[in-house]
Design a protein around this nucleic acid. Structure first.
Length: 376
RNA sequence: GGGGACGUAGCGUAGCUGGUUUAACGCAUCAGAUUGUCGAUCUGAGGAUCGCGGGUUCAAAUCCCGUCGUCCCCG
């Protein structure tokens, strides 16, 4: 359930909150990605201490390994991974289209082979919902097809209609399961629909109409930041977000960079998920108020300052760039952890500051000031 | 003392029956990419007067002689 607290005067940015069975989150917010039940290298407690309010997991990966029974027997995903807060689960649509070696799309659903061992699965809009319910997800995503970029208009149309059909079936299934009290019936859990349409503005509008017409607890934009130019993504946001209901939370899937988040918040997006902070951390890239720090660079060999002097995370409180540079140079796992901790903290802090700026009525000024230093 | 093998970038190697241009490759170094996961991967850069000296030849890392060095075998 979304509550709109305040709209920015000059932009479409908005301040709000969203309630889930495992607590409230403030929006705009960012979800670190814990695909397989862990934000890589970090304990759930560390993720929480970094300032994270909600994390993302992935049904596709968990379905393949360890499989539904294990998590069900464990008492649900939250208990299993020791994360007491809200969890949003992606249906796995994206993975089926990005990882699976063999997939066959039918009206029914999608047949695919595991990217791990080649085992065959058939995922339907109904089973996607069922599995996410079984996980005990706070926010479930409807099964969708994520288009690549570029993509022909004809295919984008067919895919958009397919996604809409799946969305409707997912919604029905969700209602049925909840009312039947199946598995982990959580009265306040949510199902989000996903707007597709490729990079065609009119299709995006049409898809927004289709998905909002079905009626969901929140709406997501999918299939963006898949290789299209940034300006195109911003244009799509500007044209599509206004068609997403004001009284529902808006989720931009898979985004993104610091710049993208500012632009998207400005366009009216409320929540994000992205691998950037964690993946880049493991590749030696740290985010700071002053821009990116590529910790492998030789210039940090004898730099005894913290990654980000303005950051309060344990990485910045106790360790130097020099030390972390060394850890990366010798391929020590602890380095991955330290930068992951920092980057997750950086993103959580960034979102908190964005919320404060909206609350204070100076989002535009904050954005300009922040990016001026960050990109400068 | 006798015989043999080998010296090519920081390290490990290829090329060595003379002639693809500017001596190749891996690791390392330096830099960049990374958007519903990637301890992955990709891209680019720098770095060798081919142990040294002489000879043969139109042409030598490549053939010959000498020399220095390393390693092995025999005494």
């Amino acid at each position: 359930m979304y509550t709109l607290i305040k709209k920015d005067d000059k932009t479409r940015a908005r301040l709000g909150s969203f309630s889930t069975p495992h607590g409230m989150i403030d929006t705009p917010n960012f979800m670190p990605v814990g695909t397989i039940g862990a934000v890589k290298t970090l304990s759930a407690d560390e993720v929480r201490k970094a300032g994270t309010q909600i994390m993302l997991s992935n049904a596709y990966h968990l379905l393949l390994r360890p499989g539904p029974d294990t998590i069900k027997s464990a008492g649900g995903l939250h208990k299993w991974i020791n994360w007491p807060g809200p969890i949003l689960t992606d249906s796995g649509g994206f993975q089926i289209f990005s990882l699976s070696r063999l997939r066959r799309i039918k009206d029914d659903g999608v047949e695919f082979r595991s990217h791990i061992d080649g085992a065959s699965f058939f995922l339907t809009p109904e089973s996607a919902v069922g599995f996410q319910l079984l996980l005990g997800s706070d926010i479930m995503m409807a099964l969708d097809e994520c288009l690549p970029y570029p993509c022909t208009r004809d295919y984008a149309i067919r895919s958009m209609d397919l996604t809409a059909g799946w969305a409707a079936r997912g919604k029905n299934s969700f209602i049925k399961e909840i009312s039947a009290g199946n598995i982990f019936p959580t009265p306040d859990s949510s199902l989000f629909g996903i707007i597709q349409g490729g990079t065609y503005l009119d299709l995006r509008r049409q898809s927004a109409g289709q998905i909002t017409g079905i009626g969901f607890d929140g709406y997501a934009l999918g299939g963006l930041s898949v290789g299209e130019p940034r300006e195109l993504m911003y244009e799509i946001l500007d044209n599509t977000v206004p068609l997403m209901p004001d009284d529902k939370i808006r989720y931009l899937m898979g985004v993104g960079t610091v710049e993208d988040i500012f632009e998207s918040v400005q366009a009216g997006i409320d929540i994000f998920d992205c691998v950037v902070p964690t993946r880049n951390a493991r590749n030696g890239l740290a985010f700071t108020c002053f821009g990116k720090v590529r910790i492998r660079n030789a210039r940090y060999k004898n730099d005894y300052s913290p990654i980000d002097p303005s950051c309060g995370c344990d990485c910045c409180r106790y360790y130097t760039r020099s030390y972390i540079h060394h850890l990366f140079n010798i391929n020590e796992i602890f380095g991955l952890k330290l930068l992951s901790l920092h980057n997750v903290t950086f993103y959580a802090t960034l979102m908190k500051n964005i919320r404060e700026s909206i609350s204070n009525g100076n989002f535009c000024e904050f954005k300009k000031e922040f990016l001026g230093i960050y990109a400068g």
